[in-house]
Design a protein around this nucleic acid. Sequence first.
DNA 1: CACCGAAGTGAATCATTCC
DNA 2: GGGAATGATTCACTTCGGT
Lengths: 366, 366
Amino acid sequence: MTTLKTNRLYQGDCIDILNGMPAESVDMIFADPPYNLQLGGDLLRPNNTRVDGVDDAWDRFDGFADYDTFTRAWLGACHRVLKDSGTLWVIGTYHNIFRVGTALQDLGFWVLNDVVWCKTNPMPNFRGTRFTNAHETLVWCSKGAEARYTFNYEAMKALNEGLQMRSDWTLPLCTGPERLKDDQGRKMHPTQKPESLLYRIILASSDPGDVVLDPFLGSGTSAAVAKKLGRRWIGIERDARYLVAARERIAAVEPVADVTLLRTPRKRTEPRVPFGVVVERGLLPPGSMLSDASGRWSARVRADGTIISAEHRGSIHQVGAAVQGAPACNGWTFWHMRADTGSLVPIDLLRQRVRAELAPAATVLS
Amino acid sequence: MTTLKTNRLYQGDCIDILNGMPAESVDMIFADPPYNLQLGGDLLRPNNTRVDGVDDAWDRFDGFADYDTFTRAWLGACHRVLKDSGTLWVIGTYHNIFRVGTALQDLGFWVLNDVVWCKTNPMPNFRGTRFTNAHETLVWCSKGAEARYTFNYEAMKALNEGLQMRSDWTLPLCTGPERLKDDQGRKMHPTQKPESLLYRIILASSDPGDVVLDPFLGSGTSAAVAKKLGRRWIGIERDARYLVAARERIAAVEPVADVTLLRTPRKRTEPRVPFGVVVERGLLPPGSMLSDASGRWSARVRADGTIISAEHRGSIHQVGAAVQGAPACNGWTFWHMRADTGSLVPIDLLRQRVRAELAPAATVLS
DNA sequence: CACCGAAGTGAATCATTCC
DNA sequence: GGGAATGATTCACTTCGGT
């Protein structure tokens, strides 16, 4: 149990290999486990108790019980290596995703979202017996209800051109040149995931330099995209043939050189500016009148950076909350001042001016 | 245990009432059980108004084990009354759908599809902490792997303008005049489902004259649509107040003769393509240089789909406008990239490629 | 009456830092 | 660790009132 080695591949059973890694050392896990498409397959059969000749219902339950055992084992191993601030993604279909989701919840994982990947080009249902199976489901979860986790909200919003990213993603299947082929021209891996899917996942829930682990690496999509996006990566795969293909694929990836292009700054990381500094710098003299956008409430600025309304005195946040009868209020955006043009503008403009003096950078357009 | 009475409502616990019905007598069941939302305190919108969430007693459970017990009990009762040729639909979210799906499989139900209802107008995530929860999940299943069941493939294909109906359905929430209100003008039921959703479900998986049962009737959407579509119906609801509203609603329904009237045209407008999707799909890697046609201005592509010039950062449209000092700019035609031939071509070519992949888009029932 | 802006609302597991 | 303070945060659509 030494330090974590990153940017490398492991061959073997993921449970064994995960158990050999240090606890709480990984920032994000993406897992694309076997889907249990045929029940009672070659998954994990610790002691084969299956009896020939049982009726269908029992056989089915036996199949699910085996799958559940397997699922809880690898999810438990993932739980151990995941940092408390880390998150886990699992992808699946109706064959297995209910088992996975139930296991996640029973193991204490806290579901943050289920995300549906709607395929632009799914395989049709040839026999006309069901709806075209046109989506897969991802479950995204933290280690617990109270855990802090990384969610690059602003990056996702930017990626969606200014609108919040939703839980339904429309993306094409992995086809064309992106699809790995063997030397016979046949597809190398039956369920290779598209890079666009991993791009969104990794960008959303990790930061540059973070460790991204995939316990069922397959064709290596997650590691390839992690490398491209400046993350460290770890891949585990049982099949030597897949591992060879993945290694070659990952080696060919050129990371994005400029880290500043990878990060979308978060508002919370901007320097904190007390309102008193705005007054102190003369951007708003004591005695100035403030009001909310509708002009319903007003207050006056005091020399110490507090404000006073008809009935309340305190910080811009406290008075804003008090006049509204609300539990909280962002005074920077609630309170407005009269601009030279005569219109009401939020006092947050003054904070932006103070920040611009502190750290000049490219103007962010919004 | 007499013959089945149809076109009527029952008040009481659905398990008791189902157990009083004859076995194998119902053709289709639609169930919208409590979701076990586990909400914390109040949630405030950015304007400090309160979200009217689900805080009703019927959605409170004492943990997952309690919820599982409840789920298996009512699903078991449904299994008994369902004909061998019948199918069952259950709707839920990530709070409960994994528990439901696991219980269904353990009880021997055979999953035919999971269907995602993508909402055109979901409630946003007000705190920027997760992806917008924009869908709910339906599980559709028969009584066993060998069971024969009703699936009106042609009707679904016709409803989708000649294309196979997919497993992802894009439909709006129930709002406006369709939403039942009490005499105070407040919503009658916190989770009333849209009739468009039930149209599709009932049309797909039952025939005229079939018996459609809903063990958690609520505001009565399923029974109202079943009556409209010429099916027999049975509703079970515990709350007398909901039952009164549902009875009145169902009584007002006129069955329709011509089902083809329900067909709706494909949305004609071209799908919106955020520039970020072009980056995400690898059509233009982060770090790529863009310039205008004359080469006078340039900018670089960031991982989140924004671009950055010497002085500005923002969307392709925003930065295009800013460098020109113009009020607005179509970034798709303003910005160019260097093609393999060495010539500058507009990035709109990339949007056209994405749109070509999106061509078979989802239809919207209006 | 048409048009426009303000207000309301929907199954929601909805914060972080400092002292 | 607990409590107080700061301050971040919304999309699509309907309804209603004013001009």
